[in-house]
């Protein structure tokens, strides 16, 4: 039950890849099997945090009127999130939240991108813990914003009581509660997790499938080339999914913030 690289190094590809393949061996006590305090995944998350902090610090350290290449890049990411997500979804009040959205977008984009960067090749977001925690942060934030903007009672009244006659309200309030306060964080987390999990699984199936076929018999060996070509094609598809999921997560967070700030439904 090792990671992809180990399996290939040993020359024995276990063909149907399983969930076990997502649990990489430990790094700090090197190669330990049931020690999950510092694994490749942990390393990648800290690396992503470090890279993002360094990148934005360095590119904004002495901003120039005519931006350098690095500054231009950082500014265009921030500008994209600010104008195309924050202001588009929320309006002028959205500029306040643009830093959070930019952090969220960059972090998810980078951790997702580890899925296809050579030698990393697995995304931390393919473990439910990371998307779940990101979703919890967004969830707490939009509720907090809504409560601060409207006051506790009015916020819950706004989001739980739909415009309807009083006698059907008992029927509707549980549904509203379910779809506003339970489904939202769940679907945020699961959407990102499932996409990254399925993406990694798909690449594993085609890569390991190629190895399985090349060692099966002489007739199947040429087909393994097809399998690896598929892997390359799917890597490009993964790239698309990576960008799309980072964007979708940020846009949905923005739309929940917008819903929390909205006056009346």
């Amino acid at each position: 039950m090792f990671g992809q690289a180990n399996v290939l190094a040993q020359g024995q590809a276990e063909f149907p890849p399983s969930v076990e393949d997502f649990y990489l061996p430990s790094i700090l006590p090197w190669g330990a099997h049931d020690n999950y305090w510092f694994t490749k995944i942990t390393l990648m998350v800290w690396l992503a945090v470090g890279v993002l902090i360094l990148f934005f610090l360095l590119s904004y350290r002495n901003p120039k009127l005519v931006p350098t290449k690095k500054q231009w890049f950082a500014e265009s990411i921030y500008g994209f999130v600010r104008n195309n997500i924050a202001v588009d979804m929320i309006g002028h009040a959205g500029v306040r939240f643009a830093p959070y959205f930019t952090t969220l977008f960059c972090f998810i984009l980078l951790t997702n991108a580890f899925a296809i960067i050579p030698f990393f090749q697995i995304s931390p977001n393919s473990h439910i813990a990371f998307p779940a925690f990101l979703a919890v942060i967004s969830y707490v934030m939009f509720n907090w914003i809504g409560i601060r903007h409207h006051g506790f009672v009015k916020y819950f009244k706004n989001s739980l009581i739909p415009p309807a006659p009083w006698y059907i309200l008992p029927l509707l309030i549980p549904i509203e509660f379910f779809s506003t306060f339970l489904v939202r964080p769940f679907s945020l987390a699961v959407r990102l997790f499932a996409n990254m999990f399925a993406g990694h699984m798909l690449l594993l199936v085609f890569t390991l499938g190629g190895f399985a076929m090349i060692s099966a018999n002489a007739w199947l060996a040429p087909v393994s080339v097809l399998s690896w070509v598929m892997t390359i094609a799917l890597t490009f598809l993964e790239f698309l999914v990576i960008c799309l999921q980072a964007y979708v997560f940020t846009v949905l967070t923005a739309s929940y913030v917008q819903g929390a700030l909205a006056e009346e439904h």
Binding site: I175, S179, S255
Partner: peptide, 28 residues
């Protein structure tokens, strides 16, 4: 600025209300 969520957003809202209603009251 007080615009409805458009297109796909409305579709997801509709579908999630239907499924949500069914799940909540089905569970009760």
């Amino acid at each position: 600025p007080g615009d409805d969520p458009s297109g796909a957003g409305q579709g997801w809202t509709a579908l999630s209300y239907l499924i949500g209603g069914m799940l909540v009251w089905g569970f009760i």
